[in-house]
Design a protein around this nucleic acid. Structure first.
Lengths: 196, 196
DNA sequence: TATAAATGTCAGTGACTACTGACATTTTGT
DNA sequence: ACAAAATGTCAGTAGTCACTGACATTTATA
């Protein structure tokens, strides 16, 4: 979080990201963003031309787009509890890295951010495929019983998506429940539900 | 949805609700709202004075604040699958009734809507209590095994919260997965995980 | 039909805001 | 130390938007 040695462009992008995630695109002025970045408004426009292009640049710069598939192909060990832990933690890691992006795409409607939503939805979709196939494979190996692997994978993801959304921003509906014990519980639940 | 015989005030409130939920408070103009309601901008201001007060009035008018507790006290039959179905469907019903409200409180930051968020969070908190106590009671009756009832209740709710959020608006990350089969699956999962 | 209440029209005001140009100042690389 | 690049200052423009006042028109009601 040391801004001092960052380039002006990056300072502006970060400030824009934070402020827009917090107050929405229309809720922040270019002056606010520039001031938060410790720069003049003029510099903002010299770098990015328009407010729109600033947002787009921030998105391009700070959206983590690594492929999840490779990440799992090598790490799965075909032990249900270990693998579900890997999936959960990886999921929350990626979602947290993209936290600001997700906040923004939640607040703004599609018109203003072309292709924005498509990109924030890439990971969840990948994850569903991976987890579904994992359940099928585990079923073949006789390590779990599964009637509808896709729905079960979906349920698992929705659980963590819900928990992530609940954590997002300040508006926590359920204070006092930490993420780590929840992850543990979710895994135990599925382990028990799927045991042969 | 027949606007023709509604009073002007209600027409404006509904239009405001829809538009603000869609485009955010700062993304809609008072002229847009009035036009959508089939009325003049002047009428809007004559009724509500300011744009802020319009939003507040819309919130007061269309936020469903029934108590969940009574709703369940009478209906629970102490059969896990039946009761979980009741809980799920009731949850989705209430969330869907408050859909627009939830969309708005997601888009706007707390500063603009005092006490807004507190009210949208009332239901979820009530539900957690109810479900936790239900699990404890069911455990006493020997009908389920439960190690950590609050975390399990939380997990169940997060699952449905996630599914609801995923359904919200247009930005469905997982098309092709219906809500009803998901509800069924979620119940079966918990039934299997909690069976003695 | 007479009267009052609700709504419309229209022109306008003041505040805000994205964005620009001209010019001065600072920072950086060599 | 020098030139070039980056940044700041400041005044200003054009557009938008919440909100108002004066007056006309419609609608409801008795």
């Amino acid at each position: 979080m040391d801004n001092s040695k960052m380039g002006s462009g990056d300072k502006l992008l970060l400030a824009a990201l934070h402020l827009i995630a917090e107050k929405g695109y229309n809720g922040v002025t270019t002056l606010e963003i520039a001031t938060a970045a410790g720069l003049s408004e003029k510099t903002l426009f010299r770098h990015f031309g328009t407010k729109q292009k600033l947002l787009e640049a921030a998105f391009d710069r700070y959206h983590y787009a690594e492929e999840m598939k490779k990440l799992f192909a090598e790490k799965l060990v075909w032990d249900l509890e270990k693998d579900l832990l890997l999936v959960s933690t990886t999921y929350h890691e990626i979602m947290n890295r993209n936290r600001k992006m997700i906040q923004i795409s939640l607040k703004e409607d599609e018109g203003q951010l072309p292709g924005f939503r498509a990109r924030t939805q890439k990971h969840p979709q990948q994850l569903l495929e991976i987890l579904t196939n994992y359940f099928i494979e585990m079923s073949h190996k006789g390590k779990i019983v599964t009637s509808n692997p896709e729905l079960q994978a979906f349920s698992f993801i929705m659980m963590h998506f819900g928990a992530f959304m609940n954590d997002l921003d300040q508006h926590k509906s359920y204070p006092g429940i930490g993420l780590t014990p929840f992850v543990q519980e979710s895994i135990q639940l599925f382990a028990r539900a799927l045991r042969p």
